[in-house]
Amino acid sequence: MIPQETIRTAGLTRAFGGKEALSDLTLSLSAGEVCGVLGPNGAGKTTLLKLIAGLLRPTAGRASVCGFDSVRQQDDVLRHLGLLIETPVFYDHLCAQENLALHLAYMGTAGVVDDALARVGLSDVGEQPVGQFSLGMRQRLALARATVHRPAVLLLDEPLNGLDPIAVRDMRTLFRSFAADGMSVMLSSHILGEVEQTADRVIVLSQGKLAAAAQIDALRAAHPHDLEDHLIKLMNGGSSCRN
Rank of each mutant, 00 (worst) to 15 (best):
Val195Ala: 08
Val148Asn: 02
Glu98Thr: 14
Ala10Ser: 13
Gly108Ala: 07
Pro129Gly: 05
Leu143Gln: 09
Lys45Thr: 10
His149Asp: 04
Lys19Val: 13
Leu81Thr: 06
Thr59Cys: 00
Leu22Thr: 06
Arg79Thr: 11
Gly182Arg: 05
Gly193Tyr: 08
Leu122Cys: 04
His225Lys: 10
Ile7His: 06
Gln128Cys: 12
Met107Lys: 14
Asp114His: 09
Ile85Asp: 10
Lys233Asp: 15
Glu194Gln: 11
Ser177Tyr: 05
His103Asn: 07
Thr59Trp: 03
Lys233Ser: 15
Leu25Ile: 13
Ala110His: 15
Ala212Cys: 12
Arg8Ser: 14
Gly121Gln: 02
Ser70Glu: 05
Glu86Phe: 02
Arg145Ser: 01
Glu158Ile: 08
Val113Phe: 01
Pro224Gly: 12
Leu234Gln: 15
Cys66Leu: 02
Gln197Gly: 10
Pro58Trp: 06
Asp124Trp: 01
Gly61Met: 13
Gly111Phe: 02
Leu234Gly: 01
Thr9Ala: 02
Gln74Glu: 14
Leu22Cys: 03
Gly18Asp: 09
Val185Cys: 05
Pro159Tyr: 02
Ala10Asn: 11
Phe175Ile: 04
Asp200Cys: 01
Leu234Arg: 15
Arg140Glu: 04
Gly32Cys: 09
Asp217Asn: 10
Arg220Gln: 11
Asp76Trp: 11
Gln139Arg: 10
His225Val: 04
Glu33Tyr: 10
Ala110Leu: 13
Asp157Ser: 02
Ile85Ala: 04
Leu231His: 08
Ile52Gly: 07
Phe16Ser: 07
Asp69Met: 13
Thr13Leu: 10
Ser30Thr: 14
Leu122Ile: 05
Gln139Thr: 09
His223Cys: 09
Leu84Ser: 03
Arg145Asn: 05
